[in-house]
Write a protein that binds this DNA or RNA. Sequence first.
DNA 1: GCTTATGTTGCGTAG
DNA 2: GCTACGCAACATAAG
Length: 600
Amino acid sequence: MKGGNTSNPVVLYWHRTDLRLHDSPALHAALALKPSIFIPVWTWDPHYVYRARVGPNRWRFLQECQADLSKSYTKLNPNQKLWVVREGPQTILPKLWKHWGVTHLVFEKDTDAYAKDRDIDVIKMAEKVGVEVIVKMGRTLFDPDEVVEKNGGKPTMSITQLEKAAEKINNGSPDKPLEAPKSIPDPWEEDKMDLSSLKQDSVDHEPDFNSEHRIKADAQYSQLMGPNNDFGVPTFEDMGMDISEAVTPHRGGETEALKVLGDCIKHEDYIGRFEKPNTSPADFEPQSTTLLSPHLHFGSLSVRQFWWDVQGVLAKRRKEKKPNSSVPTSLEGQLLFRDMYMAAQAALGHEFDRTHGNRVARFIDWHLKTNPAKKDGSIDGAYEADSQDAEGWFQRWKEGRTGFPWIDALMRQLKQEGWIHHLGRHSVACFLTRGGCYVSWERGVEVFEEMLIDHETASNVGNWMWVSCTAFYSQYYKCYSPISFGKKWDPEGQLIRRYCPELAKFDKKWIYEPWRAPIADQKKFGCRVTGDGSSSSKEDGTEHTYPKPMFDFDERRQICLDGMKHAYGVGLYGNDEKVKNGTWKKEFDGGDRAAKRQKI
DNA sequence: GCTTATGTTGCGTAG
DNA sequence: GCTACGCAACATAAG
């Protein structure tokens, strides 16, 4: 790679998945160039804005991360901030290189399949015009590509595989965190920073996966430098969205992330004895886990900082002869799972997030399967509407009106707060797929993608495949019950009372199964169990209603179990020819099994 | 190639 | 409140 003017480097730092100053190997490398000019940018990419499913809560979290980072830059240098430009990186970056006389482009490595393609394009363009590119890994404990290589080129399908691969990289020890910079060089003077003379490339507003959240036309791309021409962080106003819809109590930003981490680390007993299966999915205020996952997603917290802070506590406890929990249920184990999914994603690329063509995804004759990719390899998100029942169940699941209070409370918590406990995710995911609705895990992935503030493609897709027994895990006969699983953690039904307030007065005897309460009791508790929970089914008057269960769970569990057993017996995977050409149906009684399943 | 143990986190029932 | 076990039984790694 030919460098530009290396004696006076003009460094463009491209923030993406690293909204922080602490422990950023890429930022460290950028500043090590001793830039004469340093410009940290964020490209407000139409691909993410329109083609990723993002709900109001995650937009808000992202904006808080951007605003906090911008403020931190300004604190170190009053001339600095995060410079947000409104255009796709593939078109705006070459214009910026030219306009600002950039010699070096520096960014953190990404594992996402779309991001990888995008970065390859950008690197090629940079090389063409003599801009030197520096890419550093910093998003995971270990470089996912290196993990894959040490795993024999195969996706990591168990935590043991991940650990063994990590052992070969650095004796299983991630790099130590780097200090945040103490100073930041200047950008160009105001006149040269101004981009008014640049022509903005046209932006494809359609399809807009997030249109349902827009209350008016958006003006995100009205000006390259934003509506105030100040490179400011986009607002809900710009996006045509209503900020009052973003009701999550969880706050974004590096400052907040480091504060939460610091508070967690102080509780040494909690850190040392942490076992995920023993943390309650029903706890709120405070939650039973750290809530640091959204910060890991946006990079407002470095995962290696988290890892080594935890290691510090564990070492201290070992010295004090206090017991520590172990992988995989410990806190370290949770972070290793994240790396495991990242490496699986890195190995599989575009195959990873769908069934079709996926070599590790079992083929199961789910309802509402994603349609196969078009000839050009693209998928438009459409799915096969093979069952009206399943479509209805899917909508009721999504909206939290299945008639099973434990499921509905969790789905409403998810929608309101953008976060639910991992075991709560298991519970609702099992219910949608192999333990209730027999709907494809691909539908669940999309709903979580939209709603979760900590949405990480690798972990989200990986966990959906896990829980649906599509990959990673295969004991489909172990099924979460929407009644007894919640009861075990929360016999009083506090979570249900909070998120399904219409049931708040129910006796604990009925709170998980309100349809079984005698009518007289329902009247006494001020809530009738009737209808399907849709707005049209609600009776007028002051009395509350809660929907009847949408099916008999025990019956559905049996039907699902039978379906899974058959699919496992057939043994097809997503990359099988029969899956690709549709002849899989012959193995599933000519495609009749789905029809039979509905009639039961 | 065989057997055996293990695998992030289940449920329902019996004692 | 706790533990043990049947459930119906897969994939993978280790020996």
